[in-house]
Simulated scan of single mutants.
Amino acid sequence: MTSPATSLPTGPVAAIIIDRLVAALHPSHLDLVNDSARHAGHMGDDGTGESHFSVTVESTAFVGLSRVQRQRLVNNALGDLLSSRIHALAIKARAPGER
């Protein structure tokens, strides 16, 4: 399946994030940024270079949902990654047509 991503960081954790979000939310837009280099040496940096991310995801799954409900859908899609491999995740979740 081709991802609707415009920005794809490389690495195993990034690949899992993209795969899970595509499978769960069928996004029309997905942008994932690896912010880990900006946090090197800080708390939560596990040395892998894949501990801090920002994601922008646009999906019809978010239509009519609050910001919190949208973030919960993203968190549910990522599940165990948030407790084991991702220290920080900034989420921008929008429905089609929103900015």
Rank of each mutant, 00 (worst) to 15 (best):
L21W: 07
S51D: 12
A93C: 03
A14F: 14
A37I: 11
K92M: 08
H87C: 04
S54V: 02
V63Q: 14
V57W: 12
E58R: 14
N34Q: 06
A61E: 11
S59M: 12
A23K: 14
R99K: 08
S59R: 14
V68H: 12
R94E: 08
V33K: 08
H87F: 04
D46V: 02
H26Y: 00
A93V: 01
T6S: 12
D35I: 00
D80W: 07
I18M: 07
Q71H: 15
D19S: 14
I91G: 07
E58H: 07
G41Q: 05
A23H: 08
R70G: 13
S59Y: 11
H52I: 02
L65T: 07
T60Q: 07
I16E: 15
V55K: 11
V55S: 10
A23F: 00
N34A: 06
E58M: 15
L25N: 04
G49E: 10
V33D: 03
R72L: 10
R99N: 10
P4I: 09
A40Y: 06
A88L: 00
R70W: 08
A14M: 14
D19W: 00
G41W: 01
A95E: 12
L78T: 03
R99C: 04
T2V: 10
D80I: 08
D19T: 12
P9F: 10
A37G: 03
G44Q: 01
P9I: 10
G41S: 07
A14C: 13
L65K: 15
L89G: 03
T48H: 07
H39D: 05
R38N: 13
S3M: 02
L81M: 05
G11A: 06
S66Q: 11
T10F: 01
P96Q: 06
A93N: 02
G47N: 11
F53A: 04
S28C: 05
R99E: 08
I17C: 08
A15I: 04
F53P: 07
H26I: 00
T10P: 02
Q69C: 03
P9D: 12
S83D: 06
R99D: 09
R85D: 15
S28F: 08
N34W: 06
S28D: 06
S28I: 09
V13H: 09
T48C: 04
G47A: 09
S51M: 11
A95R: 12
G64K: 11
E98D: 13
G11K: 03
E50P: 13
F62V: 11
P4F: 08
A77S: 12
H26N: 09
A88P: 00
L89W: 04
A93Q: 04
M43F: 00
E50N: 12
S59D: 09
A95L: 13
K92P: 02
R38V: 03
E98C: 04
V68Q: 13
G79N: 09
G97V: 07
H29F: 14
G44S: 02
T48L: 04
M43N: 01
L78E: 05
A90F: 08
L21I: 13
I16F: 00
E50Q: 15
R67P: 13
L81V: 02
A24K: 07
L73D: 02
D80V: 15
L30K: 01
H42V: 00
